[in-house]
């Protein structure tokens, strides 16, 4: 295999994995903007998306597009319900308390998934065949293109939502200053609900797209959540574009690290780069200076 095709192969791999990290990172960003908390259950939404999809298509034999839409809807509802049950009733909660609540929530989701679907792994058929596409000696699966496509669609939808709709603008207002936002008549509590629903939905979409390539099981969420969290912070917390760029970057660094340096230390290499970036730019790649000061514990 020539060096060029190796490089291209690492790039393909990195971008595919990075797209998932980016979507998880986007989920973190949306909830962070609305509430200031890091949602530890974000990875579980990805897991739930994959698991529900498997259940709908493999057990109930629904066609793929219907299954996709339904799974995203179901997980969106789960995310919203989680907010109503665990976050909404609290008056003036501390950020750290909310974070631990999401952590407890992630344990509940994991436990429920284990009870419902057992401990084994589940696969899904690829959306459009498994024949890899060969480009300059490197290969990419059609499913990887689906993942990248879904990421692009999610980013486009979010960009439209935040820039051109009233509700999206209201959400942005909330993230800048919730008190001022409520003064101009924005229902902040409802925005928080919406943020949970949206990140759950995005997480689910990522999970569904990802399951055919990897396999899904009840405890896969944590690691994906961790990587997404790193992406969200590396990009500059609260900055969606940053999260996407950082997610892709982490994926690519991991892949090149494993390929050219050492597969044993590939995660350490990615985390090392993350540390260095943070030390040079304490508020991430795209984060503003004030962002790092906001939302103390």
């Amino acid at each position: 295999m020539s060096l060029l095709s190796q490089v291209i192969q690492f790039l393909f791999t990195g971008i595919t994995i990075g797209s998932i990290y980016a979507m998880v990172g986007l989920g973190f960003t949306i909830i962070y903007n609305a509430t200031g908390i890091i949602n530890f259950a974000q990875g579980e939404f990805v897991m739930l998306g994959g698991m529900v999809m498997v259940w709908l298509t493999a057990v109930l034999h629904l066609p793929l597009p219907v299954g996709f839409v339904l799974s995203v809807l179901i997980v969106t509802v789960i995310g919203a319900a989680f907010e109503r049950v665990a976050i909404y009733p609290l008056k003036k909660p501390k950020v750290l308390i909310l974070i631990i609540i999401t952590l407890a929530g992630s344990i509940v989701f994991k436990g429920a998934a284990m009870l419902l679907w057992g401990k084994q792994t589940y696969g899904l058929p690829h959306f459009s065949g498994e024949a890899p596409i060969v480009i300059l000696g490197a290969t990419i699966l059609p499913q990887a293109l689906w993942i990248i496509g879904i990421l692009i669609a999610v980013v486009a939808l979010l960009a439209f939502f935040f820039n051109f709709t009233m509700l999206g603008k209201a959400m942005r207002a909330c993230s800048i200053n919730p008190v001022a936002a409520s003064l101009v008549g924005i229902n902040v509590k409802r925005i928080v609900l919406l943020s949970f629903a949206m990140s759950a939905g995005i997480g689910a979409a990522a999970g569904i797209a990802f399951t055919p390539i990897v396999l899904m099981e009840f405890d896969r969420g944590a690691l994906l959540g961790l990587k997404g969290f790193c992406a969200a912070v590396l990009g500059g917390l609260g900055n969606g574009t940053g999260a996407v760029i950082a997610g892709l970057l982490i994926g690519v660094i991991e892949s090149f690290g494993a390929g050219f340096i050492s597969s044993e230390y590939k995660d350490a290499i990615a985390l090392g780069v993350l540390l260095i970036v943070l030390l040079v730019r304490p508020s991430g790649i795209m984060g503003g200076r004030e962002a790092s000061k906001l939302k103390e514990f």
């Binding site: 295999m1 190796q6 192969q9 690492f10 393909f12 791999t13 990195g14 595919t16 994995i17 998932i20 990802f210 390539i213 990897v214 896969r220 690691l223 994906l224 991991e254 892949s255 090149f256 494993a258 390929g259 597969s263 044993e264 590939k266 995660d267």
Partner: peptide, 17 residues
């Protein structure tokens, strides 16, 4: 001599090598 983590999702990099 390549390794991967028990929860890793992709080993194409190692296999490409």
């Amino acid at each position: 001599d390549e390794t991967y983590g028990p929860k890793d999702t992709d080993m194409t990099a190692q296999l490409t090598k």
